[in-house]
């Protein structure tokens, strides 16, 4: 991923190196000062098991299991405040995405809600080329604590009444092309 790798690719050895290698520009993580600006800027930081600053120290200490089992990356709302403010220009939001990917790949996440949501969303995109909100909502919410979400029924009715919810998916024309591109990309990703 990094420009330096193209000259001399070497397989990452530690968890820390793996996280950096799997993130575009991830090498900057070495520069973390542990200043805590990230956590202080995070709108959902108080709901995280470990603050972003702490997570980066844990990544550097190769505490793979604890990091990937934590809810920290899943509570990242992709607002980019931390990325914007980081004095060392670490692409923090991208690193959170990397931790999510690794947690899914290793099956280490504890709470399945967020990973399932992402996967259901993308499953429909891979099928139709565009998002399909009603399909997403029904597939996801009926399998994730449906009784706690009865109020979403009124939400769906509100949306339907105002014609804001499509009842059927509208696939793109060239699905074959998109599927070819994505499967090639997956193949390349597997070989990285």
């Amino acid at each position: 991923m990094m420009a330096s790798e193209s000259t001399q690719p070497s397989p990452p050895r530690t968890f820390f190196e793996e996280v950096m290698a799997k993130t575009p520009g991830g090498e900057a993580l070495r520069l973390c000062l542990q200043c805590g600006t990230c956590g202080g800027s995070c709108p959902s930081g108080e709901d995280m098991d470990y603050s972003p600053r702490r997570i980066f120290a844990m990544v550097e200490a190769n505490m793979k299991d604890k990091v990937l089992r934590s809810n920290t990356p899943w509570n990242c709302v992709s607002c980019y405040y931390c990325t914007e403010r980081c004095p060392q220009e670490i692409p923090i939001t991208d690193i959170m995405y990397t931790l999510k990917r690794m947690a899914i790949a290793e099956g280490l996440y504890e709470d399945a809600d967020a990973p399932d949501w992402s996967q259901t969303f993308i499953g429909l995109v891979e099928q139709y080329g565009r998002s399909f909100e009603l399909g997403l909502a029904t597939r996801y919410h009926l399998t994730h604590r449906p009784l706690g979400k009865l109020r979403l029924g009124t939400f769906a009715l509100d949306m339907l009444r105002r014609d804001r919810l499509a009842l059927t998916p509208r696939p793109i024309k060239n699905m074959a092309q998109l599927k070819t591109i994505l499967s090639k990309a997956k193949e390349l990703e597997g070989a990285r």
Partner: peptide, 22 residues
């Protein structure tokens, strides 16, 4: 013509290259 979804904030959480390719 025939644009597709951008993957929102979801695809990067699953796959890297497919997300950028999408």
């Amino acid at each position: 013509d025939d644009w597709n979804c951008c993957g929102a904030t979801e695809y990067f959480a699953i796959n890297l290259l497919p997300a950028y390719a999408l």
